[in-house]
Design a protein around this nucleic acid. Structure first.
Lengths: 342, 342
DNA sequence: TTGTAGGCGTTATCAA
DNA sequence: TTGATAACGCCTACAA
């Protein structure tokens, strides 16, 4: 409420001196007595620096804008939360805050535009992608954020040719779990993907076909399910599939939540895990540790990806101009939901 | 990057006209031709409004500051995430964004102070509490946020006498799950609380003792565990307790995560749920639906609490000066983890 | 329908 | 060691 001017008035000095002292307590510009007086006035008047005025002047806000082109409620998705968590923790220790913008728009691009509309002034951005985003949309979003001229980094977005910083998660587009199941001797597989249509899923599908080909396993579309990352949808779909195709011995799910649902579906159709059927998840989220049996899964190191993104941003904010592509790999976490047939 | 001045120069009009049109596209102040020219210049120069300059002028930022006095990474806690999700969704539809501040401090109060330090200029605040916060700290935090003079609302904080807006969740301080177990005929109970020392836990403990007294069940300290909301800690503690006290027939956990761990612990000690032992969770999070058997739990309506907090804030931002205490109650969600002994 | 001028709170550049 | 003063980008009377 109170401004630097009022402090100055109360102490009987100029606003400039107050400002200088307040932004650098060690300055020699202000005498010790004056410093003490200012400190006193600050507490008395309950002064808090106005970030907006300050960043208007310094052209620095210490704020990073988070752009998430989704119409779903935020903070409800394991992947995104882990990413955000890593991001926030790292940025926070360098004094940067996070800004989430409102958006009422419905399309991915419109959301990004609208969010940026209100965001000029951030020092940098993190651009997310979601299961909904198509190839085309991803490129337009990157272009849009690029126009701000501010440093930014993409997270959870497949590699693009553009000269932009990205944190890439190798196994995001790889059905690594399926490969592991095959290596364990499983050939009668079920693949549970997320949302149909998005770029993530398309890449995954391509690579899955390649994988089967590599091992001479025939591909059949009815063995690919779209669980939409939802426990209900995947439970229903997997239960039906298991009933229709009793020969299935392995289920590869693209998220731990869907894998935990698979365990329930297995139970519902009278199968024991891993005795009758093997299940592998992805993300190594808390669900993997909580389910019974505990899930074998692919750790995507999302938290680390988030802090990696923070590092890239911090570098850029520090003056580095070269764009960075950081490549992270997933790693297998063996627990109790997969049985080797070999 | 480009400012309103440059737009004005390019179009050949005054900055004022540009400003007026841009903040109200329907205005009659600007001719249709000029409007078109401005629009064109905006895209050509890739103009984005600078929120900071604008809020400096309007004393309105359309930003709500989120104050979470914790040293743990954000976005990793089910309760908080649900709260934030409800909050964000509602605020977003009214054009408000969310601001998360960095903090390097270690104590609850220092964190709040530091976060506020960098936040003057927000239109309002949401003050959270965590399992760590003591009674004393909660009051000091409320006082600190109150000093800003901006509207704010507390979330996940027990009722205080101060004249401040709060969204209260009735069952937060009530061992409602335990009551349900007792009503189902269970008398040999285990209570799994979160973190020792915090205000939440203390209230819960008090009310639990009262509850037992009401039913004439003796209280014994070794039947109260502190699972720290962590799956590992609670698994270990519950496993040990179950081994030491085979007579236990019911476990009331203050979070679904700990309840899911209890299911694992039951399995580890050779018990079937709910045949040999009944388990009840709290929050009705996704864990309740994913576990096997699915968890009977108390839905705390956290999402709704979040949007309730948003409503209170929106009211205050709209000029309402009276503080509101919104009281929400939990509700029982019956699934498959509790067996009635009656 | 448009322009001018002053101010929001802070910082930076001078000069004193 | 301090004080004026201008500037940051935008908004809003008020005047034209």
């Amino acid at each position: 409420m109170s401004s630097i001017k009022e402090i100055a008035k109360q102490v009987g000095i100029s606003p400039a001196s107050v400002s200088i002292y307040l932004s650098n307590k060690e300055t020699n510009r202000v005498s010790a007595k004056t410093k003490a007086l200012i400190d006193q006035a600050v507490t008395e008047l309950n002064y808090h620096k106005n970030v907006f005025a300050s960043s208007l002047s310094t052209h620095e806000s210490k704020l990073i804008g988070v752009i998430i082109p989704t119409i779903l409620p935020l903070f409800q998705n394991d992947y995104t939360n882990a990413l955000l968590s890593g991001l926030q923790t790292r940025l926070s220790s360098f004094g940067y805050g996070l800004l989430f913008f409102p958006s009422s728009a419905q399309s991915s691009i419109a959301i990004v535009k609208e969010q940026l509309e209100k965001s000029a002034g951030c020092d940098g951005y993190v651009l997310f992608s979601t299961g909904f985003c198509t190839h085309e949309q991803i490129h337009r979003n990157i272009e849009e954020v690029g126009k701000t001229g501010k440093p930014f980094v993409t997270l959870n977005i497949p590699k693009v040719d553009e000269d932009v910083s990205q944190v890439l998660i190798d196994d995001l587009a790889q059905p690594s779990g399926a490969r592991y199941l095959i290596d364990c001797g499983h050939t009668e597989l079920l693949l549970v993907l997320g949302r149909q249509g998005g770029e993530h899923t398309r890449a995954l599908q391509r690579n899955y076909k390649r994988l089967l080909q590599e091992y001479g396993i025939p591909y059949s579309p009815e063995r690919v399910l779209y669980g939409e990352y939802s426990e209900e949808t995947s439970y229903t779909l997997i239960t039906n599939a298991l009933t229709a195709m009793p020969q299935i011995t392995g289920i590869c799910c693209m998220s731990d939540i869907m894998a935990a649902s698979a365990i329930r579906a297995a139970a519902a159709t009278g199968r024991a895990v891993p005795r009758d059927i093997s299940i592998i998840g992805r993300n190594d989220s808390i669900h993997a540790r909580l389910s019974l049996p505990a899930l074998t899964t692919i750790d995507l190191h999302m938290q680390q990806a988030g802090s990696g993104a923070a590092n890239v941003l911090l570098d850029a904010l520090d003056g580095s101009t070269a764009s960075q592509k950081i490549l992270l790999s997933g790693s297998l976490v063996e627990r109790d939901s997969v049985r080797s047939l070999l």
